[in-house]
């Protein structure tokens, strides 16, 4: 067995050599730390993105022109600039504007991915709202519901079922995009892996493990939503 391993070249030398794996697993706590930060940024970022996205989506379908315009500008700005630059600007521009104000990197990460995906989710929610027939809006209004009440009780619950699949897609992208905060030393999974690997060049095993962890975060989410989707279809 050991003879067999000794004959496999890529386990003896190069980026995937066995000593590199050993080094990684004896320092694996670093990776767990990063995973924890990623989980925190992703979950709070998702909450923020969902809240923002719902507001933006409702504003986009409002008959109030100013609300539509604000939503449009927000969406176009965040969709058409790279997240990397947005996070960089948040990190560097806020201390310039408010000297002495200290914002933890994790908070910047939450706002970075939250606002960015809020724009995408806003578009998803808008499409969902627009897919609900006009009759639903009219029925609710005719019963005396306010516009906001109509959205809350009648339109959005129906739209949410429709937007569940694209919403999962956004959640998965959001988790992966938390890795962008590595550029501002965010302490997340990507940053933890990268800085560990960079010290001794253990990139091979580290990226395999880090990539696997991202997969393990995203894959069950995709499966879960798929199941919810089937359930709502059956109902």
């Amino acid at each position: 067995m050991s003879e067999l391993i000794q004959n496999i070249r890529f386990l003896q030398e190069g980026p995937f050599a066995i000593p590199r794996w050993e080094a990684l697993f004896s320092n694996i706590d670093v990776i767990w730390q990063g995973l924890l930060v990623t989980l925190l940024v992703a979950s709070l970022g998702l909450v923020l993105a969902l809240a923002l996205g719902t507001v933006i989506g409702v504003m986009s379908t409002s008959h109030w022109r100013i609300a539509r315009a604000v939503a449009r500008v927000y969406v176009e700005f965040f969709q058409n600039t790279p997240l990397l630059i947005q996070v960089f600007m948040l990190y560097n521009a806020i201390p310039l504007m408010y000297p002495g104000l200290f914002i933890p990197v994790v908070v910047i990460g939450i706002f970075g991915v939250g606002m960015y995906h809020g724009a995408y989710i806003g578009e998803v929610v808008r499409a969902g709202i627009q897919s609900i027939g006009r009759g639903q809006l009219e029925a609710a209004l005719s019963q005396g519901f306010s516009y906001v009440g109509t959205m809350r009780y009648i339109i959005i619950p129906q739209a949410m079922r429709i937007v569940l699949p694209p919403l999962t897609n956004q959640a998965v992208n959001l988790i992966k995009n938390t890795s962008v905060i590595a550029i501002i030393a965010g302490g997340d999974l990507m940053y933890a892996g990268d800085s560990f690997a960079g010290r001794y060049g253990h990139y091979g095993p580290t990226y395999v493990v880090v990539g696997l962890l991202y997969f393990l975060l995203c894959f069950p989410l995709a499966r879960l939503t798929r199941r919810l989707e089937d359930q709502t279809r059956a109902a």
């Binding site: 009759g135 009219e138 029925a139 005719s142 005396g144 129906q158 079922r161």
Partner: peptide, 19 residues
Amino acid sequence: AKVRQEVAMVFQQFNLYPH
């Protein structure tokens, strides 16, 4: 909205809330 609470409407396409 207040007056609409006293003026009910029945639609051609029913428009019940499907959820």
